[in-house]
Design a protein around this nucleic acid. Sequence first.
DNA 1: AGGTCATATAGATGTCCGTCAATGTAAAAT
DNA 2: ATTTTACATTGACGGACATCTATATGACCT
Lengths: 118, 118
Amino acid sequence: MKAPAQRPELIDEKATECCSLASSPLGAGEAERMTAKLKALSDPTRLRLLSHIAAQGCDAVCACDLLDVLDISQPTVSHHLKKLVDAGLLTREQRGKWAHYTVVRGAFTELRELLDLR
Amino acid sequence: MKAPAQRPELIDEKATECCSLASSPLGAGEAERMTAKLKALSDPTRLRLLSHIAAQGCDAVCACDLLDVLDISQPTVSHHLKKLVDAGLLTREQRGKWAHYTVVRGAFTELRELLDLR
DNA sequence: AGGTCATATAGATGTCCGTCAATGTAAAAT
DNA sequence: ATTTTACATTGACGGACATCTATATGACCT
C-alpha cells in the first residue's frame, strides 16, 4: 500500500520577512482599514487630482485650479476631493469663497510600509 | 474703480518635491496604469490573501491552504487570486493538481515610490 | 474506465461607484 | 438688494465588482 498523496507541505519556517505584509496575516478589521485608503487612491481621476496638488509642493491648492486641469464636471471634482478628504489624504480649508486642499503629510507612510517588499 | 477680486495666486515655485507624486502631474495613461495595481490591492479579501502568502516568506503557497484561512467560497478565492495574478502581484504555478501562488518580488516598488512623501 | 479531488469558469444577483445635470448655499461684487 | 461666483449636495443612471451556486476541467487514484 502506497503512501497517499498528501497536500503540499506548509512552509512554516518563521517566514523570511519578505515584506511588512509578512509580519503577520492581516485580520479582517486591519485589512478593511488599509483598503479604505487604497480605495481612495484607486481611481485615475483622484490620483491625478492628488498629483496636481503634490506637484505644487503639497501646499494648499484652490479647487478652481483643479477644475481647469482635468476634463470633468465641477460636481465630479468636488465629489472626488471629498473622498480624498474622508480618507485622510487631503485636508480642506475654506478661504473666503474658495476651498483649498492640502496633502496630508505622512498619510502614506502606513501604506508605504505595507508595500515594503524586500 | 477697485481692483477686481483675483483668484488665489498659483504657487509655481518649482514645487518643493514633497513626494514622487510631485515630480509631475500624472497623465491619464500613467494614472490608469498605477490604479490597476492599486485596485487589485483595494479589497480586504485580496489584501488578506496576499498577506497570508507573504507571511510564509512570499514563496509558493497552495491555493488549498488559502481556502482554509478565510471564510469565503472556493470560487471566490479563485476569482481573487486570478485578479492578483492579472495585476502582476502574484504568479501562478501548477504542480500536479495543485495551484501554487507566489508574491512577485518588486511588484510594489513602483507603488511605494509613488507614495514616497517626504 | 470510473471516481475523487483541486481548481477554474459560467451565470446570476445585489451592491457599490463614477459621472452628470440640476439645485442649494454662501460669500463677494455691483 | 440683487447678481455673480465658487463650491457642495441631490438624485438618476449605467457600469463595475464581490459573492454565490452550479458546472466544467483536468490530474491523480483504484
